[in-house]
Simulated assay, not measured.
Amino acid sequence: MTVRGSVLRIGEPVERLAVLSDVHANVPALEAVLAEPDVHAADLVLFCGDLTWGPEPVRTVELVRALGPRAVFVRGNADRAVLELAAGDRAAATPREAWMLARHPVDAVAFLAGFHFGVVVEVAGLGPVRCCHGSPRADTELVTPATPAARMAALSAGVPERILVGGHTHLQFDRTVGGLRSVNPGSVGLPYHDGAPGTAYWALLGPDVSLRRSRYDVRLALAATADAGDPKADTITDLLTSPPSVAGLTAHAEGLEFSD
């Protein structure tokens, strides 16, 4: 389990915060979300981790860098894995890990190194919001719509913010349990959902939480995965066209609690 790391606190309150998570270098999905008027108009665009672990990391970095200072980044477990592989602190355990490292040039690795374990933003109408990848205590913690109150209390111990926004499970939800509001914007690039293929999920915060979705041409994402030579192209294709159900994934994740 990865413990708490650096937390960035944004000094100025914002009216609108767009939150995108788990892009997984799915460029067609990312482009569709970035083209949304409410994302374009947001004061900040916050990425909740696992940005580049997918077929087109270089193009993904180009797109988010174009947002300039409006973009803020949380480090996910996949982003951390790239850094560990590049530093030699982690041996490639699978052909896909070796392939993934080769897809990340030095400049992309350096970009990921600037991400934060957590970010706290004051959002109009909501107050202070803590954004992380898994949870405030681990980037591998699986938080779902069914996570019990006792574990929510444990994972938020010592955290003053009462609104937590995280990714990692690729499930979109907004729930309140034990006085803690838990929000997952869903995954932009590899969602687990009951909707149609070619749907990217995200959220807009301020003055409340608005769960959003954007449509894109999933055939472009499937072609990019195949063209990149992803060793798990068949698996990614299945996930994009026939993902696990929300109920099934929730039950599986709650049985694990932590997963890298």
Results as ranks from 00 to 15, higher is better:
H168Y: 00
R75V: 11
T52L: 11
A153V: 00
A71F: 10
D50S: 07
E31H: 13
V246S: 01
R103P: 06
A92F: 07
D174L: 05
E12F: 03
D217E: 10
N184I: 12
P105Q: 02
V188W: 00
P13V: 07
I10M: 07
V106L: 12
K232G: 04
R80H: 12
G229D: 08
W99E: 09
L190C: 13
E56Y: 08
A66L: 08
L20Y: 13
L180G: 11
H193G: 01
R80G: 03
T2F: 09
S135Q: 10
E36I: 04
T60V: 08
L249W: 15
R130Q: 05
D89K: 14
P231S: 05
E97H: 03
A86F: 06
W99I: 11
N26T: 03
L142Q: 06
E62I: 07
L171S: 00
E254V: 07
A203C: 06
H193W: 11
I236K: 15
V74Q: 07
R151I: 06
P57F: 09
V177Y: 12
T169R: 12
L249I: 14
V129F: 11
W53C: 09
R103S: 02
P148H: 13
G5E: 03
L112P: 04
L126W: 07
P69L: 02
V39Q: 13
H170A: 06
R96P: 01
R162N: 03
S210Q: 15
D79G: 11
E141Y: 13
R103V: 02
S245N: 02
E141D: 08
M152G: 07
A18F: 00
F111I: 06
A233I: 09
T237Y: 14
E161V: 00
L171T: 13
P160Y: 12
A154L: 10
P57T: 08
S182T: 15
G189S: 05
L30P: 04
E15F: 09
A150R: 15
A154E: 03
D234C: 08
L142K: 11
I10E: 01
W202K: 13
E31Y: 13
V45Y: 04
P28L: 02
M100W: 03
